[in-house]
Structure formats: C-alpha cells, structure tokens
C-alpha cells in the first residue's frame, strides 16, 4: 500500500493539471527504508509530449545525488496520462528501473476528476496497490494552541509538552 499525505497528492495533481495535455512527471523522496514519501520534487518532462515522458538526464543526476546526500530514496515516481487511464503502459513497464518505488499514475483525461492509482513494477510484473491518502498529521499540541484562540493558520509549538 502507498500511504501519502494529501498535500503531496494535491501538489502532484496540480502539476499534472498545469502541464496537461503534456504528460507531467516527478518524484517524491523519503528517508531510506521508511517507505514514506515526504519531499515532492516536480521534474521537467524533457520529451514535452502528450504521450511520453522522460526525466532530463542532468536534472535526474542532480536530484538523485541530492537524495543520496540527504539519505533519501525515490519512494514515489509519478507521471500523468492525459488521454488514457492511469494504468502502466508497456513503455512504463519496460523502463521501470526502481524496484523499491511506488509508481503513481494520475490520469487527467477527465477535466473535473482525477484517477490516481499506484503500482509496484518489478522485473516487468505490475501489481496494483491501494493508495491511502492521509490528511496531515495534526500535532495534538498544535490543536491545543488553536483551542487557546490562536489563528488557525498559526501553529504554536511553544505549547509542546504542556
């Protein structure tokens, strides 16, 4: 199962909508071994195509090195299909080279709704998995500060531990 924060999903969908009708692509990095996507990195689609996407090789080197330096790995690799369903194509399967990643597909073929699905692709075998969209974990202390009449937009961590 892929468990992912709603704010990240929203950012991925916004990226896919922004680049529609071209395919959009990117990565969500997370700590090595944690299987938790935390850092959204929209990537350029070097192919700039409605039916193909490709990371720019130099941008990929920079981003992969950065993940390495931060002890992160690509937890999610996403792209959009803009006229077809959110299911891996033969091309997607041929290229899938990160056996540990969740391959997230977003279809933007419908203007008002998005289809979001996630897959593991290992040795050419596709396995769909459930996607759990998690609303941002609310720090109980942050809630406490909200209850004391602070602006809801302000999170007062000073209250921690009280």
């Amino acid at each position: 199962m892929l468990s992912i924060d709603r704010s990240i999903i929203d950012a991925i969908v916004a990226h896919a909508r922004r680049d529609h009708p071209d395919e959009a692509c990117g990565v969500v990095a997370g700590p090595v071994g944690g299987d938790t996507p935390t850092r959204h990195i929209p990537m350029e689609n070097a192919a700039r195509s409605m039916t193909f996407y490709e990371f720019d090789s130099m941008e990929q080197l920079r981003v992969w090195r950065e993940m390495d330096d931060r002890d992160e790995e690509p937890v999610v690799i996403y792209h959009s299909h803009t006229a077809t369903e959110a299911y891996p194509s033969r091309t997607d399967i041929s290229f899938a080279g990160e056996p540990g990643a969740h391959y997230l597909l977003v279809s933007t073929r419908e203007p008002d709704t998005e289809e979001i699905r996630s897959f593991r692709i290992v040795d050419g075998v596709v396995a769909e998995e459930p996607v759990e969209i998690v609303d941002a974990a609310v720090d109980p202390n942050a809630v406490q500060s909200y209850m004391f009449g602070q602006s809801p937009a302000t999170v007062d961590y000073e209250c921690s531990g009280r």
């Binding site: 192919a47 409605m50 039916t51 490709e54 290229f95």
Partner: peptide, 11 residues
C-alpha cells in the same frame, strides 16, 4: 542510474 521514462504511447 536507471533512466526514468515512459508514457501512454506504445514502446
């Protein structure tokens, strides 16, 4: 690095 590419088009 594994190239990251794909898309809806035929291979």
């Amino acid at each position: 690095l594994p190239a990251v590419a794909g898309g809806a088009f035929g291979f």
